[in-house]
């Protein structure tokens, strides 16, 4: 690991999990692993990004993701500006492009963007000179969520010394509203890059079109997949999908695709249960599952900060040289 692991020219942005090669993804996980040891010490703030400005540009409410990025940037001593659409000029119809130009004038070294439109982060990257980190764009991707999920899997299932390692042969089952899930898209791409075997489980109405072209398998039968899963990742299902006739009722959805204690018992001994949050307890995941020792939901949150620190650090290296 010498020279420039993330050449400034190639990776100024993190828009899609597909942008990452295996080596690059492993580098992020390894960097996060080292930072985790920092996080374990009493002094947790690093001077790395001192003098740099990270803007959190959130067009959609997401307190948990924004807070996670904010904590990551602050632990690296960056100046953080939170720019939320609500109550700002964005709410008055300012375009994404004009917002980008405003950020540019503020001298943002990195823009963390959450937007309801797929591709918004991609478009933004064309209008700013700083690094763009996609914190969720519509139903497209959420790459840092996939990275923190992979980090959590490696932490819980990997060998004691995980440095340099991927997730080869780990069997991951992702369950729920895959069609509308940016978390699922990013996870499929990243986990495949890291060597995991991913299976998507959803009712046919919530399975993406052309899923056979994705680097994963697809199944409608949750119970059949449970027995051969090292990881089960439950996706949030939204009530409004019911009114659009994707399934008849929340109760029926929960019966067929929810993870309850009975289903959890089908899992192998070592298997873990993940959820990107926020959870609908009693819908896609039962309370006793969410609170069980198999659940990594709390670890995912703390790992989120560490992985985002790694991403910001690796992207912002050489920022001046690239600009």
């Amino acid at each position: 690991m010498t020279g420039s692991p993330m050449p400034a020219g190639r990776h100024r942005h993190l828009i899609s999990a597909a942008d990452l090669s295996r080596d690059e993804a492993v580098l992020i996980l390894d960097t996060a692993a080292e930072l985790a040891s920092v996080a374990g010490r009493p002094i947790r703030k690093l001077p790395t990004l001192r003098g740099m400005t990270v803007v959190n540009l959130f067009f959609e409410d997401s307190t948990r993701t924004r807070t996670s990025f904010e904590a990551a940037a602050k632990r690296l001593s960056a100046d953080v500006i939170n720019f939320s659409a609500r109550g700002s000029s964005v709410a008055k119809g300012e375009s994404l492009k004009d917002t980008a130009l405003t950020l540019e004038a503020m001298g943002a070294d990195a823009v963390v963007v959450r937007h309801s439109a797929s591709g918004a982060a991609h478009r933004l990257a064309g209008w700013v000179t700083g690094s763009v980190v996609n914190a969720g764009d519509g139903t497209h991707e959420h790459p840092t969520q996939a990275l923190l999920d992979a980090f959590t899997m490696r932490q819980r299932l990997g060998a004691p010394d995980q440095r340099g390692g991927g997730l080869d042969g780990v069997r991951v089952t992702i369950v729920g509203d895959v069609l509308h899930s940016r978390v699922a898209r990013s996870n499929v791409l990243l986990l495949a890059t890291l060597g995991a075997e991913v299976t998507l489980v959803a009712p046919p109405t919530l399975m993406p079109y052309a899923v056979e072209t994705w680097p994963c398998k697809a199944s409608y039968d949750f119970d059949a997949e449970l027995r051969k899963s090292d990881v089960v990742m439950m996706l949030r299902v939204q009530q409004e999908r019911m009114t659009a006739a994707y399934f008849p009722s929340i109760r029926e959805y929960s019966r067929r695709y929810g993870l309850d204690a009975g289903r959890m018992a089908l899992l192998p001994e070592h298997a873990i249960v993940m959820h990107p949050g926020p959870m609908n307890r009693g819908v896609e995941i039962a309370a006793e599952v969410a609170d069980s020792p198999r659940s990594t939901i709390v670890a995912q949150v703390s790992n989120g900060v560490i992985v985002r620190m790694a991403v910001l650090y690796l992207l912002l290296g050489g920022a001046a040289a690239a600009a």
């Binding site: 797929s118 519509g138 898209r185 993406p208 079109y209 052309a210 072209t213 994705w214």
Partner: peptide, 16 residues
Amino acid sequence: AQLNEGEVASRLGLAG
């Protein structure tokens, strides 16, 4: 709907 329902729209997360 945003783009032809197909492999591309599915990958890009655009409604088919």
